[in-house]
Design a protein around this nucleic acid. Structure first.
Length: 454
RNA sequence: GCCGGGGUGGGGUAGUUGGUUAUCCUACGGGACUGUGGAUCCCGCGACUCGGGUUCGAAUCUCGGCCCCGGCCCCA
């Protein structure tokens, strides 16, 4: 029987996991440097959590099932809603702002393609109860910080504010439903399609013209002025534009100014209310967006108080792809520092004892478990990338010594059993166990030495 | 859901106008080598994605499924 992994899922092997862990740890450190604390929510939730937010339309892409109790459950397709739920359940009365981050996999039943899988990972955060342009700016600065720390430089951060288009549409007396449809098409960036739907909805030509011009506008900070000329007659759109300008000003104070102002960012969903941003890496191909976020009002939708919330998430898998292609290679940590090789069978137990001492010092140590010949053991140690091999042989052992072989220089030297840890100090990363363990290991080595001296 | 390209040992491949025992490299296991790794030699292991059809005979032709790759749709 040949069982394959489910479509759109992946196995990650050693090298891949090492890279993923590197990316994960890098981001964790930065998120925590900005004061975020990690949370974890269930892998599956009540189905309604996801349908009430986005409507039944998303059902086609949800992994949905009934448990033995007949409950309708769903593997989470994203993490924003679960985090909002967690906030309502647990954190409503905490002092604001609350900063939390998460890392976990999500599931969507979609056609797999480059940059898109059925199980994928998101690493993101939510900032609940912050003030608007400040929180947004800090979050965008943090996102940029992450990318820079990972050594990426071909990313683009596009920032917009939904209040601008909404303001114009309100002014044109466009209904809520029609607005949402229009926003969805703006998000796609299809100008022709937009023209058609504006015609279909019989939108006033004045509003129409402004919109068409507006969504094509993007650039650096000077774009604000151009947009202002276009929409200055509209009070709420102007207010949103001012917010956006303030955001940019703060963002620059936070040290990031490589942004692109983009009026065409709409994020598709109607619960976004203020600033929105998306990050692209064009070299990724069709699925080039690695991150998206903004300010939204989801908590109220779920029955909480009206509290402003800003958040974003990285498409973790896509981020890893970027890092993979990036020329700046991270220093590769050795998977193994030491391999302990008994030269003859009767040295086996001694080899185990020595290995165990090294492990107490957090030295990455492996030892022969299958009783192979020395030649094979060395070959094994070599293919594992071991930096050193400790040869435990009878002749050396008679003198209370072992042979320490440097696999890179091919040199070897006799080292006193009691000096093993000392030998490694300064050569490989070494832990500092507590006093009790130090004493134990030291006694263990002494016993080993005495054992053979007799 | 749609379009296109694919699927031969663990990895990479040759073979595909149908015709012996399916090629080579690598990896892996063992040995030559009883205390010294990446070398060499020998031995071993191991594959035609699955199912139906055509045929005396299918890895090869044909149909369908599954899976992979790229794209469309979608993308909370």
């Amino acid at each position: 029987m040949d069982i394959q992994k489910p479509r759109g899922t992946r196995d990650f092997l050693f090298d891949e996991m090492r890279l993923r862990k590197h990316v994960e740890n890098t981001l964790r450190i930065i998120f925590e440097a900005y004061g975020y604390q990690e949370i974890k929510t269930p892998l599956f939730e009540d189905l309604a959590l996801f349908t009430m937010k986005s409507g039944e339309g998303i059902m086609g892409q949800i992994y949905h099932f009934q448990d033995k109790g007949g409950r309708d459950l769903a593997l989470r397709p994203e993490l924003t809603a679960p985090v909002a739920r967690l906030y309502i359940n647990e954190l409503q009365k905490k002092s604001k702002p609350i900063k939390m981050y998460y890392f976990g996999s999500c599931f969507r039943y979609e056609r797999p393609q480059k940059g898109r899988w059925r199980q994928f990972w998101q690493l993101g955060c939510e900032l609940i109860g912050g003030k608007s342009p400040e929180s947004e700016a800090e979050i965008i600065a943090m996102a940029a910080h992450c990318l820079e720390e990972l050594g990426l430089d071909d990313f683009e951060i596009h920032i917009g504010n939904l209040g601008i288009i909404r303001g114009i549409l309100d002014e044109g007396d466009v209904s809520k439903e029609e607005q949402d449809k229009i926003m969805a098409i703006v998000d796609k960036g299809e100008v022709e399609e937009l023209k058609n739907i504006l015609k279909e909805f019989k939108i006033h030509s004045n509003t129409n013209n402004i919109l068409i011009k507006l969504i094509g506008m993007n650039g650096h900070r000077e774009t604000i002025k151009k947009v202002y000329e276009l929409i200055k007659h509209n009070k709420s759109a102007s207010k949103a534009l001012m917010d956006l300008e303030e955001l940019l000003e703060i963002l620059e104070a936070f040290g990031f100014s490589k942004y692109t102002v983009n009026m065409g960012i709409a994020r598709g969903l109607d619960y976004y209310s203020g600033a929105v941003f998306e990050i692209y890496v064009h070299s990724l191909g069709a699925q080039k967006q690695i991150s998206g976020g903004g300010t939204y009002n989801l908590i109220e939708l779920f029955g909480g108080e009206n509290v402003e919330s800003t958040g974003f998430a990285f498409g973790f898998d896509r981020l890893v792809e970027c890092v993979k292609k990036c020329t700046i290679k991270k220093p590769q940590t050795k998977t193994l520092d030491v391999f302990v090789a008994p030269i003859s069978k009767n040295m086996k137990l001694n080899a185990f004892k020595i290995a165990q001492v090294l492990r107490k010092y957090n030295i990455k140590t492996d030892v022969d478990l299958v009783g192979r010949k020395l030649k094979k053991i060395l070959s094994q140690a070599d293919s594992l990338g071991a930096r050193y091999v400790i040869l435990v042989g009878e002749r050396d052992f008679e003198e209370g010594k072992i042979t320490l072989k440097d696999m890179e220089s091919h040199e070897q030297e006799l080292v006193d059993i009691l000096e093993i840890i000392t030998f490694f100090k300064g050569r490989i990363p070494i832990g500092s166990p507590n006093e009790k363990v130090v004493l134990e290991t030291s006694n263990s080595l002494k016993a080993l030495k005495k054992f053979k001296m007799i």
